[in-house]
Amino acid sequence: MTVETSIALEIYVNGDLVMTRAETVAELVAGLGLEGARIATARNGDFVPQRGRVATRLKRGDRIEIVSPRHGG
């Protein structure tokens, strides 16, 4: 077993409350199996561009949106 050094954070991902050990938006996206997928992210209502995901650290209670293309009118 590996020793977990980080403390799990309670955050919201697409409206659902989740516990995560991800420390950044990039780690969260990777942990959800969406790395490299054509998605876009926002944190607390603000756009987080792809190049900014590594530097965007998660905080307790953050509301993260992860979206992808869909049909629309």
Partner: peptide, 13 residues
């Protein structure tokens, strides 16, 4: 086209 929430490991988009 639109954007909607994507699931973990989702490939819908």
């Amino acid at each position: 086209v639109a954007l909607r929430r994507e699931h973990a490991r989702g490939r819908t988009g």
